[in-house]
Amino acid sequence: MVMTDNLSGERRRQGRIEVVCGSMFSGKTEELIRRMKRAKFAKQKVEIFKPSIDTRYSDEDVVSHDQNVIHSTPIDSSGNILLLASDIEVVGIDEAQFLDEGLVGVCNQLANNGVRVIVAGLDMDYQGVPFGPIPALCAIADEVTKVHAICVKCGALAYVSHRLVANNRRVLLGEQQEYEPLCRECYQKALEAEGATHPEDDTEEDRQTATAPSHNH
């Protein structure tokens, strides 16, 4: 927690928003867990939240792909965070791309009240389109960390999570059977091989259709 001296010499907390974003398999959740555990070690009051639809590894725990675990509170909407985070010094939010746009205002309010907010999430969906509240959170964040997976085709830094299964729903929970990290060049080659349209060629109607949520794993 960042601390500063005020005029009376007392110490006060300085609220801030930290965003950790990138493609799947890039270590976002791993970094979130690391920062939260450091805060707990420093005897700070912490609480971590995740969307209730994310039940891939656990209904309640936040679990990284490397099986690191930290207990969390599942929520259905961003507004629940304000109700549940009273008297908390550090708030963590995993898979934030699945939450509503109100998360931006919630994070701002928490930070303005002196809370350190750490948000992890996908910055783009499988079509390379900015995902949920993450882009807006990056804009207002005090610090943005973009992490990268490694392209499974060529070993370069990955750019996007390429979906391997035929499903045009935007929200499709999955793992390595459903997604692979690809660099920009290999992603374009994959799209050409599939005969797929590029994201910028999609109509607005197509994108709306693709946002229907799914609880498939």
Rank of each mutant, 00 (worst) to 15 (best):
3 M>F: 13
7 L>E: 01
13 R>P: 04
15 G>T: 02
15 G>F: 01
16 R>H: 09
16 R>P: 14
17 I>R: 01
17 I>S: 02
17 I>N: 05
18 E>S: 04
20 V>I: 15
20 V>A: 02
21 C>A: 13
21 C>D: 06
21 C>H: 06
22 G>N: 07
22 G>M: 05
23 S>H: 10
30 E>W: 01
38 R>T: 15
39 A>W: 05
41 F>I: 14
42 A>H: 09
42 A>E: 10
44 Q>H: 11
48 I>G: 04
49 F>A: 00
51 P>L: 00
52 S>D: 09
54 D>A: 07
54 D>W: 03
56 R>D: 05
57 Y>E: 01
62 V>E: 02
78 S>R: 00
78 S>K: 03
79 G>A: 06
83 L>D: 14
87 D>Y: 05
87 D>T: 06
88 I>Q: 05
90 V>C: 05
90 V>R: 00
92 G>M: 06
92 G>Y: 07
93 I>D: 05
96 A>K: 01
97 Q>D: 02
105 G>C: 04
106 V>F: 00
107 C>K: 07
110 L>Q: 00
110 L>F: 02
113 N>T: 04
129 V>D: 08
131 F>N: 03
131 F>M: 04
131 F>D: 05
135 P>H: 00
136 A>Y: 10
136 A>Q: 09
143 E>P: 02
144 V>S: 02
148 H>C: 09
148 H>P: 11
152 V>H: 04
154 C>S: 09
160 V>Q: 08
161 S>D: 07
162 H>A: 14
164 L>K: 10
165 V>M: 07
170 R>I: 12
172 L>T: 09
172 L>F: 09
173 L>P: 04
174 G>I: 08
175 E>Q: 14
175 E>C: 13
180 E>N: 08
182 L>A: 09
182 L>F: 10
188 Q>L: 15
190 A>P: 11
193 A>G: 14
194 E>I: 11
195 G>R: 09
202 D>V: 11
202 D>M: 15
203 T>Q: 12
206 D>P: 12
207 R>M: 12
207 R>Y: 14
208 Q>I: 15
210 A>T: 07
211 T>F: 15
212 A>S: 12
215 H>R: 14
